[in-house]
Amino acid sequence: MSAAGDAILAALPRSGEEPRVCPYLMAGFPDPEGTADLLLAAEAGGGAVLEVGIPHSDPLADGPTIQAAGRLALARGMTTRIALAQVAKARTRGLRVPVVCMTYLNPVAQFGLEDFCQAAAAAGVDALLVPDLPLEEMEELEGAASRAGLALCTMVAPTTPDRRLTLAATRATGFVYCVSRTGVTGTGDPTEGASLLERVRALSDRPLVLGFGVRRRSQVVSLTGLADGVAVGSRIVEAARGDDPAASVREVVAELCGR
């Protein structure tokens, strides 16, 4: 296991306590140079692992909130390079928690898989999560990530049969991202994810992060004993729309963490 994988494991311990909160931020939203501030705010609010989304013109797995944020970021000039530079900036300003870069395949493919992994690792990214890269197509990125010392997270869904769950769990060097229900980000009821979490848990000792549709603290608490982390996306992105994005992001993350 890579050092990056270890950092994620350490940040998402299996403890029987409530799951750790993993806030998702759209890089470049609401403005390209503000992402470092928001990362630091999310950490200050209590985020255990941060997910940074690279905006894409055609985000197939995203619902309206994250789509709109990505579109705005692109319109304001956000690029993959600026996103990585913002992570690096947050690191120099003291960001300590692991960062997972969530990106669709095409921006990474155009950057070059090898170059992207090296640049992401140099910027202080710990792991990658690529929602449109299924297990069957992962090998090339797996190699590039491992050469760069990056961990790779895999995704599973309620429709994933057990045979593939096992495969996803063995291939993950970071966490296993469990999609709470069939759908896109921002939709769904996370309690529907319970049976999926139980199925993966029986097959794997990787950290399990549940995502899609988590908005409230009560939902986080209800996943105690089931998930090691919960990803919260649309709710955080909504918070970043306000007049003082950093303050709102910090406040919402703190609320989700019960602080």
């Binding site: 197939l60 797995a61 299924p134 297990l135 069957e136 599973v156 429709t159 049969p161």
Partner: peptide, 20 residues
Amino acid sequence: PRGRYGEFGGSFVPETVVPA
């Protein structure tokens, strides 16, 4: 095999629909 036409094709979609 794997939907490949030379270096083109494939299947790059979210896991939810891979089994389908």
